[in-house]
């Protein structure tokens, strides 16, 4: 036992060895479904966007520093890794934005019925990819 909380969850098996009692059902006992995938993705996209926010600051600081520093950021963003970062950023941004609006609607007390819940989930997924595609088509056309 390393933690006082263990006193509440430790038991002995039939051979007398110490075992941890299960605390609550864990993720692996559930069948994967859209609601849980989207919930996990919301947190995951938030973490990805944190990295994206730091890239934005890097871009701004470089632009404020010198044309050379700005050129380095633009070179990185124009490389293959840069494109992967930017496309991933766009997907994460639209997903977190649309699913965030879904969360705000729940906070207001609407959309908890199971069919509504599933429909809005799929709307978020479709809208994410539609807007990502739109932004990249327009962006590359501008370029």
């Amino acid at each position: 036992m390393k933690d006082v909380r263990d006193a509440l969850i430790v038991a002995r098996n039939t051979e007398g060895g110490l075992v941890h009692r299960p605390l609550s059902p864990h993720l692996q006992v559930y069948r994967w479904q859209i609601s849980m995938v989207l919930s996990i993705m919301h947190r995951f996209s938030g973490i990805a966007l944190s990295v994206g926010a730091l890239v934005l600051v890097w871009w701004l600081v470089a632009a404020a520093t010198s044309p050379d520093a700005f050129g380095q950021v633009q070179w990185f963003l124009g490389s293959i890794i840069g494109y992967i970062v930017l496309i991933g950023w766009t997907i994460a941004l639209f997903y977190h934005l649309f699913n965030g609006i879904r969360h705000l609607v729940w906070d207001a007390g609407y959309g908890f019925e199971k069919p509504t819940f599933h429909t809005t989930g799929w709307v978020v997924v479709v809208a994410t990819f539609a807007f990502t595609l739109l932004v990249w088509i327009v962006g590359l056309a501008v370029k």
């Binding site: 730091l54 600051v57 701004l60 632009a63």
Partner: peptide, 13 residues
Amino acid sequence: LAALAGIISVLKM
């Protein structure tokens, strides 16, 4: 720090 760096950069430019 990131927020401050971003804001200062925007103001400087």
